[in-house]
């Protein structure tokens, strides 16, 4: 059984069908790239995985556990959503860092709040705080931001902000880390530094889903590529299959168009 299994996911906004019969699997440690033009449903798919949207149909199974099944009311309970969200991390296109906190605090906050709920928090407060801080510092270091920890988001470049956002998502050690067009809000210069960081995560046992417009990145970093069009999976396969030997006419058109841009 695959690590992540998505079965027949469907999502409507009013009468508009945004996702239709989305099914795919992903193995642990793999990187999935989702490509496709704007409005094809890529972002909605990621938002469904992170429970920011509730699918109308279908199921999400992670590591053998059914996290969501549209036909099973028990898995739709609101109280459970919060726990389920922790299986997934999401890096936003627009970073969404908390502006009132330093880079370090941005990375620490969620874990602090989570740990505060554990019964032994009061006794071991200091030790737990130290541990969270050390972890956060380690993550920021890994992102190449050792000298930026005490800066506020507004004092950082877009690329630096996005790297803080990646560290923030990693701090909760999600099973699957999702990226929603992580470089779309960045200049070409800054895009590189963020992609490098994401590439660096591969192989460290991180399972990742990356929605991206960076075709070269998708081709070289992913193990699996999904091309989406009008809410359906138009094509799915290894990067070689999808990029070099696309079967669908829509995929070919899309790839040609994105090549012309260069």
């Amino acid at each position: 059984m695959a690590f992540l299994e998505i079965n027949h996911l469907e999502k409507h906004f009013g009468s508009t069908r945004v996702l239709e019969d989305i099914s795919f699997t992903l193995e642990k440690g793999q990187v999935l790239a989702i490509i496709g033009s704007s409005g094809s449903g890529k972002t909605t798919l990621l938002r469904c995985l992170n429970f920011l949207e509730t699918p109308d149909q279908g199921s999400i199974t992670l590591d053998g556990k059914v996290l969501f099944d549209a036909n099973d009311p028990a898995t739709r309970a609101k109280q459970e959503i919060r726990k389920k969200r922790l299986h997934f991390g999401l890096v936003f296109q627009s970073f969404n860092l908390f502006p009132q906190y330093t880079a370090l605090k941005n990375v620490m906050l969620a874990k602090e709040l989570l740990k505060k709920e554990s019964p032994d928090y009061k006794e071991n407060r200091k030790a737990i705080q130290e541990e969270i801080r050390a972890e956060a510092e380690g993550l920021l270091e890994r992102m190449g931001l050792s000298d930026r920890m005490s800066n506020y988001p507004q004092q950082l470049s877009g690329g630096q902000q996005q790297r803080v956002a990646i560290a923030r998502a990693l701090a909760l050690s999600p099973d699957i880390l999702c990226f929603d067009e992580p470089t779309s809000a960045l200049d070409p210069e800054l895009t590189g530094e963020v992609l490098k960081v994401i590439r660096g995560l591969k192989g460290s046992d991180s399972t990742m889903i990356v929605v991206t417009h960076e075709m070269e990145f998708a081709r070289h970093v992913s193990d699996k590529v999904i091309f989406m069009a009008d809410g359906v999976i138009e094509e799915m396969g290894t990067p070689e299959q999808v990029f070099d030997n696309p079967q669908s006419e829509k995929t070919r058109q899309f790839l040609n168009k994105s090549r012309e841009e260069y």
């Binding site: 992170n50 429970f51 920011l52 919060r82 726990k83 969200r85 922790l86 997934f88 991390g89 999401l90 936003f92 627009s94 969404n96 860092l97 908390f98 906050l109 969620a110 709040l113 989570l114 923030r168 998502a169 909760l172």
Partner: peptide, 15 residues
Amino acid sequence: VPKGQQEAGQVLGMT
């Protein structure tokens, strides 16, 4: 306050 702020908190498992 932009909606993204709330969503960022949500995906980080905050109540």
